[in-house]
Simulated scan of single mutants.
Amino acid sequence: MPTYFPQQFEKVSPKKVSDFIFEQLEEAIILKELLPEEQLPNERELAVMFNASRLAVREALARLEEEGLIEKRVGARGGTFILPLTLHSHRRHRDQIAADWEQWSKVFEYRLIIEPEAACLAAQRISEAELRQLQQYLDMSIEADCPRELFRSLDVKFHLSIARASGNVYFEKAVRSIRTKINPALDLMPYSNEVRVRNSDSHFELLRVLHERDGVQSRELMKRHIEQAASAIHRRVFEERPADEEVPES
């Protein structure tokens, strides 16, 4: 008698060690955990960190260089350095996002479920230390000389910290995955003082209701915040916009 399995199994696909190294470094760069002009450890040190061969590390670095995420420099101050994601974002992502908008819409739909619920739980469980950390991120983001890449990094930290404050590791992992997917689209957005203030105002309002332990309002504010971000991305991808026109980021 045949056995019928209720689920679909995925076919096995071979994966090299270099693929795992590439994916971890790519994620760290996309999430702004590694910022532009930061220098990566050398191949030998990376091989030790990943418990892999130098050849696997070299292959991963070559892929990152092809993607325009890192740059190898020679000379006395040479090494491998992180490049600004926004440097090539207009070339890498706009057409790709437009061509695959159906899948992007599903990511936004998923985000609209996950992050508001994480914010609701965070309002109930967040510690005073975590609230202070969020405040520090926001204070840094509104400094007059805050550069674009640092601002984007602080934005990611703010959202990931709220997910972590939910006290549920599954929410934290989900938000990390979401941000890895949507950050390339957010890097398409222009940057100006007005954009920075508008985005920070939204974050300050969210921080206020987290301080008040108001789960319902935290959920609603986060929902509104990410709806605005999704709409801004859609406009940026599909409408012709002057280079200096401002849209919200987050």
Rank of each mutant, 00 (worst) to 15 (best):
T3P: 02
F108D: 05
L138Q: 05
V12A: 11
S105K: 14
E128P: 02
Y4S: 12
Y110S: 09
H203E: 05
R63P: 02
Q228P: 00
V247G: 01
S166D: 08
D201H: 11
S202Y: 03
D187M: 13
R179S: 09
S177D: 10
F171W: 03
E220Y: 05
V169N: 06
R111T: 03
F5K: 09
R92C: 04
A163G: 11
S202D: 10
E67M: 14
I178R: 05
V197T: 09
L34H: 08
P248K: 00
P116K: 03
L221F: 10
S18V: 01
V12R: 12
E59M: 12
T80C: 14
D145M: 05
L134F: 06
A163P: 10
R73H: 10
A99P: 01
E102K: 15
A232S: 14
D244R: 04
S127Y: 02
I70N: 05
I233G: 03
K106E: 13
K223A: 10
E38F: 07
L35H: 10
N51K: 15
L46H: 08
L188R: 08
V209C: 08
H203T: 00
K173Q: 15
T86K: 11
Y137S: 04
L64A: 01
M222I: 05
E194C: 04
Q8C: 04
E10Y: 13
L83N: 08
K157I: 00
S141D: 10
I114Q: 09
H225C: 02
H90D: 13
I70Q: 11
F22N: 01
L34G: 05
K15R: 15
P248D: 04
R73T: 05
L40W: 06
E194S: 12
K181M: 12
